[in-house]
């Protein structure tokens, strides 16, 4: 019997977006990265080819990440005190791009300053030639205060700025617009909110090929199923031709997994939880793999070993199988 594989016929596709700029385009990145462009549900190669691989970013911070798991402190060691060195180490570890998260406070414990943020961004750009995403600490006022000067300082590099949220997107979007950068819009796990936020951002005049979407995800064991389903629904909507859901998706897997008790705590936990380090890495790897299946385009991770494993998953997912 010959089997006919049942194909969905989609009218839409995910927006292609290019991050970073090389010397040819006025930047200093070694190469650019293009994400998105999918025309099928994730990796259904018999319907259409997957034009671009999902990529993995490693997250670094502008100052020592006190609140990170001790396992991450141990893994990265001294570089954690120096964003430039950390960026170089992350590139060395195989990251496709970097996310620099700015803290609420500086080294001295006082509120973070634009000078500090700009210095960190510049150090990262100097130490690594990967495309860069820069995200504020997550408080509207401080975000704007830090991200705007960073955006100015990175002009020409086509960096990604975050986070745009429904109550705070204008300033960041305007600054991205002025300096040729991109933005991330984050909405709390809801298809319609993601869509509305994209509309708001686009209405500021920023072209749609400069908007990434963070649908908000939970870690394994802490609500992963909500993010997973919202992502599947966003991808389905994109393929059905709903334009404002067609942004590539970025998911902060490292941030979510490494704050779970499983990854963060090594003592006084149930014996059935097994080895701490391997558990942390597995938590991050399993969360990342699941969200890849749901359509993630950019995964932001924290542990270099997880990066190594998830890269292998991606390579296998992208290998077009013999039709069987």
């Amino acid at each position: 019997m010959a089997l006919e594989f049942p194909k969905d016929s989609w009218s839409g596709s995910v927006q292609e977006i290019t991050l970073g700029a090389t010397a040819a385009d006025g930047g200093t990145r070694g190469k650019t990265l293009t994400v998105g462009g999918a025309k099928t549900m994730p990796y259904i190669h018999f319907e259409a080819e997957t034009p671009h691989k999902p990529v993995i970013a490693l997250e670094i911070k502008d100052s020592f990440p006190e609140d990170w798991s001790p396992l991450l402190h141990e893994t990265w060691g001294d570089v954690l005190n120096d964003p430039g060195k950390w960026a170089a180490a992350a590139q060395e570890a195989g990251a496709d791009l970097l996310v620099l998260t700015l803290g609420l406070t500086g080294k001295d414990g006082k509120p973070n300053t634009p000078d500090n943020a700009v210095a960190a961004a510049k150090a990262v750009l100097a130490a690594s030639d990967l495309p860069l995403i820069i995200v504020g600490p997550g408080q509207a006022e401080l975000d704007n205060e830090l991200i705007v000067p960073v955006s100015d300082a990175c002009v020409g590099e086509r960096v990604v700025l975050g986070l745009c949220e429904d109550k705070n997107y204008r300033t960041i979007a305007a600054s991205a617009m002025a300096n040729g950068h991109l933005v991330i819009g984050r909405a709390p796990m809801d298809v319609n909110l993601s869509k509305q936020l994209n509309i708001l951002i686009k209405d500021t005049g920023l072209p749609f090929d400069r908007i990434l979407m963070d649908p908000t995800v939970g870690a394994l064991g802490y609500g992963i199923e909500y993010g997973y389903s919202v992502m599947e629904r966003l991808r389905l909507a994109a393929l059905r031709g709903d334009g404002m859901t067609q942004s590539p998706m970025i998911v902060v897997v490292g941030h979510e997994t490494w704050k779970t008790k499983e990854a963060k705590v090594g003592e006084d936990v149930p014996e059935a939880w097994g080895d701490w380090l391997e558990r942390g890495i597995t938590w991050e790897t399993v969360t990342a793999t699941s969200l890849l299946e749901a359509g993630a385009d950019i995964l932001v991770l924290r542990h270099p070993e997880s990066l190594k494993r998830v890269k292998k998953v991606i390579d296998s997912l992208l290998t077009v199988p013999e039709i069987t």
């Binding site: 992963i224 939880w273 597995t282």
Partner: peptide
């Protein structure tokens, strides 16, 4: 069989 991996899969 590793406790930490089966734990993660059972939770998933």
């Amino acid at each position: 069989f590793k406790k930490e991996t089966i734990y993660s899969l059972l939770v998933l």
